[in-house]
């Protein structure tokens, strides 16, 4: 058995005292130790975006980060975002536009889109595409995802001329 290291992670605002192996990814800790399964393991090697979480507000692939690397840093998963008021317009837009089919990629898209809208409040369709290009949806619900994120931007940051 490999050596285990005690660490503290701050996940969705709560400190979590954990014991992990040096090789353990953030994704594995979230899913298997904390039962936060919103971040999906679809490739486990940084190719698809399904495991995206925020680390100090920045989107990261949780499968590409070791748990020991994010000690004392603020980790926010989709479960944490789902409780925030400023996530609700995004969620509503996803549902209104039918953005998704099987849904497995959606938490990753939603976390990345949330971070995107904080940086670019009203992105156009091509900004959204290039910002989300690291996320794969095998159902190819891309058109609806782009529409939803654009709409969420308008919902979050309305301008006077908006209907």
């Amino acid at each position: 058995m490999a050596q285990r290291i005690p660490i503290t992670l701050h996940v969705n605002g709560h400190p979590q005292a954990l014991s992990v192996e040096p090789r353990t990814t953030l994704l594995e800790v979230l899913r298997e130790q904390l039962d936060l399964t919103g971040a999906k393991r679809a490739c486990d090697r940084g190719e698809c975006g399904a495991c995206t979480v925020l680390v100090d507000g920045q989107p990261m692939f949780a499968c590409h980060v070791l748990a020991v690397q994010v000690r004392e840093r603020e980790v926010t998963t989709v479960e944490g975002l789902a409780r925030r008021a400023d996530f609700q317009p995004l969620l509503e837009a996803f549902v209104a536009h039918d953005a998704g089919q099987c849904g497995y990629c959606l938490p990753g898209f939603a976390v990345a889109a949330y971070a995107l809208l904080r940086r670019l409040p009203r992105p156009d369709a091509w900004q959204i595409r290039w910002e989300l290009v690291g996320h794969i949806c095998r159902c190819n619900a891309y058109e609806k995802l782009v529409a939803a994120v654009q709409d969420a931007g308008r919902r979050l940051h309305p301008e006077p001329e908006d209907p």
Binding site: T37, G38, V95, A99, G100, G103, Y104, L106, P107
Partner: peptide, 23 residues
């Protein structure tokens, strides 16, 4: 009519469990 897709909101927020999410 375009009713909301059942379960879509739960899938977005991570509340929906898939097989590998179960313990």
């Amino acid at each position: 009519t375009a009713v909301p897709r059942l379960g879509l909101a739960e899938k977005v927020t991570g509340a929906a469990r898939y097989t590998a999410d179960l313990k």
